[in-house]
């Protein structure tokens, strides 16, 4: 009985140690990436026009715009609980996606969207309207 408990505790400690190791290494990697990204951000920021956004409208390449920001959500599509097909019609869109997203999820899951998507740049709606 004692041996079982000791073994269980050792396994738990091993998993906690592994988690700590992985998370520490990842945060070190991410902070070094962020410092180089910050430098890049000071030099230039990407602006995405509607003509560019609409090109990315497939299952293999899906961009959406929400609240003036463009996100690449391609890698998230297979993992979407409501299936990739629910999002596919809105790939490459801004207003349509926003309306559908809010209608389905409200505004409470916006932070989730920003977590699962890769930020591409700012969406230039004004430039598109002028053109």
């Amino acid at each position: 009985m004692k041996t079982k408990i000791v073994l269980a505790v050792l396994i738990a400690l091993f998993v906690l140690g592994l988690t700590f190791f992985i998370r520490t290494n990842q945060s070190n990697y991410q902070s070094s990436e962020q410092s180089s990204d910050n430098l890049a951000g000071q030099q230039s920021s990407t602006t995405v026009f509607i003509s560019e956004l609409t090109k990315h409208n497939t299952l293999e390449d899906c961009w959406i715009a929400y609240d003036g920001k463009v996100y690449d959500i391609t890698s998230f599509l297979p993992r979407h609980p409501g299936s990739a097909g629910a999002i596919l019609p809105y790939c490459g869109s801004a207003t349509e996606f926003e309306q559908a997203f809010v209608a389905q999820h409200g505004t409470s899951k916006i932070s989730n969207l920003m977590r699962v998507g890769t930020f591409i740049g700012d969406f230039d709606i004004i430039g598109a309207l002028q053109n």
Binding site: K109, N112, R115
Partner: peptide, 14 residues
């Protein structure tokens, strides 16, 4: 989940 929590955060109920 421990190596890429960002990929799974979307599944967590609000």
């Amino acid at each position: 989940q421990i190596s890429s929590p960002d990929n799974w955060a979307g599944f967590v109920p609000e």
